[in-house]
Structures are given as structure tokens and as C-alpha cells.
Design a protein around this nucleic acid. Structure first.
Length: 227
DNA sequence: AATGGAGGCAACCGCACAGCG
DNA sequence: ACGCTGTGCGGTTGCCTCCAT
């Protein structure tokens, strides 16, 4: 290869306390964001991504460290069941926890059965993420008595004609079936509709589909969207 | 006391996506 | 419409610590 890079060598590996201090002071002075500028102007020899990661996962205020509580564990398990490996979404429901921490916790404590290095939703051939399950309703025009064989997951539109199929109905159903039984306090915050992802997933139609028109009394109080 | 393996965690890497000119 | 840049995300890796032998 011959020619060496002219760029100053970037530091890698563990952060030193003095580096933390520099980064913390810089962000406190100039604000979060524009990590390229942080990298250039702070005096650190760290890349932008490294600075961002360090701030986000370690230096940011209100980071909660230490072992997970039972409630947190429970919530991680349930949210993972619902959302899969969308760690940032899951972490967003755990105040003070980062996506990296949740991911690490899952991989080390909750997912022990998977051999180290085994891929999850990565396609080994093209190294791209496999598509996540579609949460878009499927509209079927003029399909009479459309069911999946069990009468689940399909709803007639109010205006007649088409039917709407919710391919994710079983996910939601199993999720709520699960949380009916445990005595642990149920954190309903995941369903406060702040996450764009959950917005289209959980609404009254979903619950109607999952639990039927008779209503399930045991679910009352767990449905923050019901007025 | 020495050592080797396993577990845990911080950080890196590559990819995707959004915003902007 | 397209390319560039910055940011975010998820998978993976490497190092440190702990513990059993």
C-alpha cells in the first residue's frame, strides 16, 4: 500500500477520565449534536461517532447505571417479545437506560441460549437486515367472510366493501395475554403513543380484534388509550 | 499462587436514513 | 433527482474481571 493517511490518528479503545472530562465540558458548553465539530474542536483525538457514543451511553445526565430491577427486566422481556431487537425503542421505555445497555443485558442475561456470534435478523448472504414483520394493515377489497381460518385478524370496514387484515394481531394478542397474569406492576408507558412505531400498532381496533367485542375486564386500566 | 475459561460490558463497525445544498 | 454529510441503530468484537481448578 504505500501512502499513509495524512489525517491525525484517531484514538480508539477505552476512554480515559480526562477525555471524558473534555467531552463533558465541551458538550455542556456547546450543546449536544454536531459531533464532527465536537471531534475537531474539543481537542480530543476521537472520531465523531466515538464522541457521540461515549456521550450517549456514559456521560449524558440521568444515565442510570447498575443492575436492572425486576420491573426493568420484565419490561425488557415483554417489549422484546413485541418489538424484537429494536433496542432504542425498548430503551426509550426504560428511563436512564441506553440502547447499548439494554442490548448487552439481553445478550448476556436473557438470551443465553443463542451461541455467541450467531446472527439474528441479519441475512448472511447480503449482510442486510431482514425485513421486519409488516405492521401495515392489509386491505382486501370485497372479500366476503375473510378470516384467517379462525376469524381472527380481519375487520370489515365501516363503509362496507373492503376488509382490513392486521398481520401483527397475534403478536399483540400474545403480548396482552401474557401481561394479564403476572403480579408485577404493569408499565403501560410503552403504549402512550410517543413512539411512532407503536402508533399504528396499538389502537382500539387492535384490541377489539384481539379480544373481541365483549371486552376483557381484566385489561381495564391497562389501556391508556381508552377515554 | 498461577492459570485458563467464561461472563460482562464498553466500544467499534457497517449500514441505513434523513436533511440539505 | 442526486450526492454528500451527519446521525442513529443493531451486530459484533475485544478487553477486563471473576471464578473455578
Amino acid at each position: 500500500m504505500g501512502t499513509k493517511e495524512v489525517k491525525p490518528q484517531l484514538t480508539k479503545g477505552l476512554w480515559k477520565p480526562e477525555e471524558d472530562l473534555i467531552l463533558k465540558k465541551y458538550v455542556e458548553t456547546h450543546g449536544e449534536g454536531n459531533w464532527a465539530a465536537v471531534s475537531h474542536k474539543s481537542g480530543l483525538t476521537r472520531g465523531a461517532k466515538s464522541c457521540r457514543l461515549r456521550w450517549k451511553n456514559y456521560l449524558r445526565p440521568n444515565i442510570k447505571r447498575g443492575s436492572m430491577s425486576e420491573d426493568e427486566k420484565d419490561l425488557i422481556i415483554r417489549l422484546h417479545k413485541l418489538l424484537g431487537n429494536r433496542w432504542s425503542l425498548i430503551a426509550g421505555r426504560l428511563p436512564g437506560r441506553t440502547d447499548n445497555e439494554v442490548k448487552n443485558y439481553w445478550n448476556t442475561h436473557l438470551n443465553k441460549r443463542r451461541p455467541r456470534g450467531e446472527k439474528t435478523n441479519i441475512d448472511p448472504n447480503n449482510k442486510k437486515y431482514n425485513p421486519l414483520p409488516s405492521y401495515e394493515p392489509i386491505h382486501k377489497e370485497n372479500e366476503e367472510n375473510s378470516t384467517n381460518g379462525k376469524g381472527e385478524g380481519l375487520t370489515k370496514n365501516e363503509d362496507g366493501g373492503s376488509t382490513v387484515s392486521y398481520p401483527w394481531i397475534e403478536d399483540i394478542k400474545s403480548y396482552f395475554c401474557d401481561i394479564k397474569s403476572p403480579p408485577l406492576a404493569i408499565d403501560t408507558s410503552p403504549f402512550l403513543f410517543e413512539d411512532e412505531l407503536l402508533m399504528p400498532i396499538i389502537d382500539n381496533n387492535v384490541l377489539f380484534e384481539a379480544f373481541g367485542s365483549s371486552g376483557d375486564q381484566s385489561l381495564e386500566g391497562m389501556m391508556p388509550f381508552q377515554q
